[in-house]
Nucleic acid binder design. Structure first.
Lengths: 329, 329
DNA sequence: AAATGTTGCGGAACCGGTTCCGCAACACAA
DNA sequence: TTGTGTTGCGGAACCGGTTCCGCAACATTT
């Protein structure tokens, strides 16, 4: 298993190594030499050493992917989509996890630059000045996925529109007393856009809304569900900012003896696959994570090749209207 | 942001670059020179070029991780654990996805070797002769995770023991008519060890068992649940080989109008977090994926440094006895 | 004082590619 | 026949590190 080098090929084919290199990179090589080299490469299973190549070219065929966490459904589906497409296109994916620490996102931007990745896909949560500075410093194309910023190419989920569409549907079904369970505004996409979409739909219909704030963790939403179960107001619908929150709220309601959708309706957002097989199945919005990942891969490759693409691109969404939300009229 | 090289450092410090290199790698350098070099490196933020280093050393600080799929709960948790520990230890993780194609596992073994990773953690499903050949060829430490083979260092889940323990518990609770829903034996851990553990427990108690075979996909288990709902035999318990299967079966039962655990009990295996918050909460076995990932990282690093470790190591498990299985006596 | 050992350092080769430059061979136009 | 252009190829430098070798300066032993 000793490494075959370009020198070996040159020697075996009886030519200079510069000629072999030219052959490999599509330079001008005569018919006769071309064939000799071809044969030798075939026989020896020669494959160029990537380090030597990168040393000179200061480039790799790697795309760095910065993710806040690896164990979320959204992240892993997205990564999967990215990987599939990159592999097809002859690139490799290098995933780095930041464990939800903003500081590490910045570190990793520099770090990936040091590793000479060709481009970076960043599944962001917040965009700060220091992020922007890092992106400027490293001189490498960066695609922001799932958040947006005017100075960075971004591919975003239509959180506002999707939330608005779902909210509007609920209004048409006659819900007028709504509880909204969301997350803090530090997460632009979920904490702001999604919330605003819902609230806009509710306000437009003149509905009565109460807002609760929780985290992305299932457990934290359980007590909220429990409290709602105890309360004696006349809310007919609980709208949750994520499927995880919906899961927690459902558990809390069950603990409090309420049944869905008979006593009260519940909706989620995000599109876990298994929301469909729960009983009751959960009304939610499906975001195409995997396809979006592939799309992101395409876009970063376009950026690499210098193509101009819009600063901001939206993905699609799909309402999944199921059993957990009741139709009042 | 131009790259500072060892030559620049040498020039600025007024020494030869070999001296700088020696300084960096802990060779013999005098006090005076040491300080000069130190200062210059400090000032310039010098960082060695990894490609140049790898070119010479034919090694990297990367550990390759081969996974059959990226979007499973088990895989993503495991990867997370691996990554955390590797980062702590100064290594980088390079994840490659095989999209569940055995052929690509073998390809990737060779491919990772080409990229000169220091070691490989392989989340395997089946081990064939060709895998073994590849592992022998590449001359790089490989740790098999989640499956076992006498010739490869492996870290495995105690599928048999865990299944046996859970099965025994069910027997103590008085279940004697059991339906087992598993997967084919091509997956050694799930299709064989897990099944055998259960069956052993059932047989020991003289229970009556019927076996169904399905896949890892939720959807494929739904019709099985539906058929069970229609059947008029007197099974009291459905034991599923994975949580996903349990989810599908539960849906099928719900479709058929059966309620759990009143009409029949259901158990899963694997330990999705949210099995706890479902209603009813699901009895299952929790496997410590994340911790196991960390453990795997430790082990591969031990292998790199030439330490001797046992060929086969077991992880732990924890029974999660919850609402979905009824206690008959 | 001479012989021997130790330490610090510079020079040069090497890892395996890419690329620039220039020369030789040949074709074609003047 | 001379001049001009094109094509194919080899030599050498270069990318940024590591490592081997040898020399000079100094310390230690006899």
């Amino acid at each position: 298993m000793k490494q075959v080098t370009i020198n070996d090929i040159a020697k075996l084919a009886g030519v200079a190594k510069s000629t072999v290199s030219r052959y490999l990179n599509g330079g001008s090589v005569g018919q006769a030499t071309r064939q000799k080299i071809e044969r030798v490469i075939e026989e020896t299973n020669y494959e160029p050493n990537q380090f030597a190549q990168s040393l000179k070219s200061k480039q790799t065929k790697m795309i760095g992917v910065i993710v806040p966490r690896l164990d979320s459904y959204a992240a892993s589906r997205t990564i999967m989509g990215i990987d599939e497409r990159l592999t097809e296109r002859g690139y490799q994916m290098l995933v780095v996890n930041t464990a939800q620490q903003t500081e590490r996102e910045i570190e990793q931007l520099y770090n990936l630059a040091k590793q000479k990745v060709a481009g970076i896909i960043w599944l962001g949560t917040t965009v700060t000045e220091r992020h922007l500075q890092a992106i400027k410093d490293i001189q490498i194309p960066v695609l922001l996925l799932g958040q947006e910023h005017e100075h960075v190419h971004s591919l975003v989920y239509p959180d506002f529109d999707a939330a608005f569409a779902l909210g509007k549907q609920f209004m048409e079904w006659g819900h007028r007393d709504v509880l909204y369970v969301g997350v803090g505004p530090y997460d632009i996409a979920v904490g702001q856009a999604r919330r605003d979409g819902f609230l806009h739909a509710f306000k437009e219909a003149g509905a009565n809304v109460t807002t609760h704030t929780t985290t992305f963790k299932i457990e934290d939403a359980i007590p909220i569900g429990e409290r709602i179960a105890e309360a004696t107001d006349d809310a007919t619908l609980i709208v949750c900012a994520t499927d995880n929150i919906a899961l927690g709220v459902l558990k809390g309601l069950a603990n409090g003896g309420k049944s869905v959708p008979v006593d009260i309706s519940v909706s989620g957002f995000g599109g876990y696959d298994f929301t469909e097989v729960l009983h009751p199945s959960i009304t939610t919005v499906h975001l195409p994570y995997r396809r979006t990942g592939s799309r992101a891969a395409d876009m970063i490759i376009q950026l690499l090749s210098g193509e101009t693409i819009p600063m901001k691109t939206f993905t699609s969404f799909e309402l999944k209207l199921r059993e957990s939300v009741d139709i009042l009229k």
